[in-house]
């Protein structure tokens, strides 16, 4: 393992803590993109050290900032509550005990404009590194280190092949791929991390596959 000098001198971030502030902002920032559409309210359930020390580390402001689309080095982060009010976003913070998760974990429930909800669970691993462990009931291990496709599809033979063929035809190399499902033959989820930015047309083509339910592209990390 070789380490870049910018991993030693970095991250560049709003203080005070790379795990409790920068990591928290990144978790909500990535979750917002996973949700992929407008929402009016976010409930944050804080586990472990997040629950105990969130006020002193500004974890609350960092989470709201991320939900608003601010990154961990955005100097508006401390004013996240004021920004949220201006944009009409409401939020809440509650402690929670989650089973078998990292010490710094948050469960985020996004309330969409149309009344639907998205639930995303993620952990801050230190040094502003994060992992998303659950998306709407699907277990995953998403680190958000490279451009990503989040797909839900029907759990049928050959669907994954169709999806990967689309990427191959467009010269997009798959770095990491994770498929999971709730039950055999029901809905499955597929997370594909790529080496290159993912053009919007990939989403369009994938959505035309009958067994594909939804496609979200995350390029901004």
């Amino acid at each position: 393992m070789h380490i870049s000098i910018f991993d030693v001198l970095g991250p560049i971030m709003i203080g005070p803590s790379s795990s409790h502030t920068a990591g928290a902002a990144r978790l909500a920032y990535i979750a917002r993109q996973i949700v992929g559409c407008d929402f009016k309210r976010v409930d944050f359930y804080l586990h472990g050290s997040f629950a105990q020390t969130y006020k002193g580390h500004g974890t609350d402001r960092a989470l709201v900032a991320g939900a608003l689309g601010l990154k961990e080095d955005d100097e508006r982060l401390p004013q996240a509550f004021i920004l949220a009010e201006k944009k009409g976003l409401t939020y809440s913070f509650q402690p929670i005990e989650l089973e078998g998760v990292h010490e710094n974990t948050v469960k985020m429930i996004f309330h969409l404009e149309d009344g639907q909800k998205n639930t995303i669970i993620g952990s801050s691993l230190g040094g502003a590194q994060i992992i998303i462990s659950e998306i709407d009931g699907f277990a995953t291990e998403y680190r958000a280190l490279s451009p990503t496709l989040l797909i839900t599809q029907q759990d049928r033979q050959g669907v994954i092949n169709k999806i990967t063929s689309v990427l191959a035809a467009l010269d997009i190399n798959i770095g990491v791929m994770k498929v999971s499902r709730k039950n055999r033959g029901s809905i499955a989820s597929c997370i594909i991390e790529t080496d290159e930015q993912i053009p919007a047309e990939v989403g369009k083509i994938l959505r035309s596959i009958p067994q594909v339910n939804s496609v979200i592209i995350i390029n901004a990390l």
């Binding site: 991250p11 560049i12 502030t21």
Partner: peptide, 21 residues
């Protein structure tokens, strides 16, 4: 002090030690 006041810093190698380098 900047770090504690939620200002912009560069972790070097960490946020807690960001004043030394």
């Amino acid at each position: 002090e900047t770090n504690a006041a939620m200002g912009l810093i560069c972790a070097a190698p960490t946020a807690g030690a960001s004043g030394i380098v």
